[in-house]
């Protein structure tokens, strides 16, 4: 049993967006801060740090979770994916991202990375959602700019396209 002491830095090695990375963290360092401050993943935004707004959502082992309610020391040897994994190196957006753009599903874009990550996880397990399913899932996020209209449209459209294999 290894006890990680509060006043030391501990090396955390894990898979981030498909690459093996490592960084140092004290036990109380939040995953959101670790990704942003130590690893430069500034696409992980922080909106409340108490688990309500969903802005910080990333995938841990493929599941959408709040990075602000996770400690860096918890992700050792696990897989963390952020919004940066969705587009390719040539700067091409994926279908969901493009649908967000098409339907004006973002304004300031601060909430967007977290929402995209939730939707990606959700659609993998719910390929044929109704609008009210989608709204229910989205209710784990706050967006102060858009009124959610464009998002719902973009998600419905992406789900339909993915389902029919387009």
């Amino acid at each position: 049993m290894r006890e990680l002491k509060s006043d030391r830095q501990h090396k955390i090695t894990f898979t981030l967006d498909g690459r093996q990375v490592s960084g140092d963290a004290e036990p109380h360092l939040l995953l959101s801060d670790f990704l942003r401050e130590k690893l430069g993943v500034t696409s992980v935004h922080v909106g409340c740090e108490h688990g309500v707004c969903g802005t910080c959502t990333v995938h841990i082992d493929g599941k959408a979770v709040r990075a602000c309610l996770t400690f860096a020391v918890q992700v050792g040897n696990r897989r963390v994916d952020t919004v940066e994994s969705l587009s390719n190196n040539e700067g091409e957006l994926n279908d969901l991202q493009s649908a967000f753009r098409k339907h004006h599903a973002l304004q300031c874009g601060f909430c967007t990375p977290g929402i995209l990550m939730s939707v990606e996880h959700y659609l993998r397990h719910n390929s044929d959602p109704t609008e009210s399913d989608v709204r229910d899932m989205l209710s784990g996020h706050l967006c102060r700019c858009t009124g959610y209209v464009g998002m719902v449209r973009a998600i419905m459209e992406t789900a339909a396209k993915r389902k029919s294999g387009i």
Binding site: R2, L4, S6
Partner: peptide
Amino acid sequence: MKPVPFDYVQAQS
């Protein structure tokens, strides 16, 4: 809004 320092154990059992 950051936690106080604490020690941490990831229990295996």
